[in-house]
């Protein structure tokens, strides 16, 4: 599913991806979700390149949930590319990572991430955080058209 995608989940860890999608599904927020497993695939989708060449570039994304530590291209590189391109610089990006390292946190805010969320380790807290995050970015926040 790539047409009309509202949430792009960029996550290489299969179990984290599954838990995230489950928590969003419980709130009926996962209908227009696309999951990609590395930074390269994320950039291909966002910029309609590679396997997504020909995808209409009009932006339907309400939020990109972006892991940092990923194979090929890191989340920070993905964020940098999104923020330096006129076509994509205003898309909301929420970093969702296990990294609590302050240099990562600072770097992301410096690059203009919309928010930085450390994945809670405990299952119930993880579910709650994703559910709150999903409702916030999909329902409460107004994104630019």
């Amino acid at each position: 599913m790539s047409y009309g995608t509202e949430i792009l989940l960029v996550e290489d860890n299969a179990s984290d991806a599954e838990m995230t999608i489950d928590a969003l599904k419980q709130n009926n927020l996962a209908n227009k979700l696309l999951h990609v497993k590395d930074g390269a695939a994320a950039l291909d989708f966002i910029f309609a390149e590679g396997q997504y060449a020909g995808r209409p570039m009009e932006n339907t994304l309400k939020v990109i949930l972006l892991d940092l530590k990923m194979p090929k291209i890191s989340g920070i590189q993905v964020l940098e590319r999104i923020r330096t391109d006129e076509r994509t610089k205003t898309i909301p990006v929420v970093v969702l990572t296990s990294s609590k390292e302050d240099p990562d946190i600072r770097k992301c805010y410096d690059l203009g991430v919309n928010s930085y969320v450390v994945k809670p380790v405990e299952f119930d807290e993880f579910q709650k955080a994703i559910s709150d995050l999903g409702l916030y970015w999909m329902i409460v926040n107004q994104q630019p058209k």
């Binding site: 609590k100 302050d102 946190i105 600072r106 805010y109 928010s115 930085y116 969320v117 450390v118 955080a129 709150d132 995050l133 916030y136």
Partner: peptide, 10 residues
């Protein structure tokens, strides 16, 4: 719930 409970700040 989002900005106070979820988000991590520098």
């Amino acid at each position: 719930r989002f900005w106070i409970q979820c988000v991590t700040y520098p």
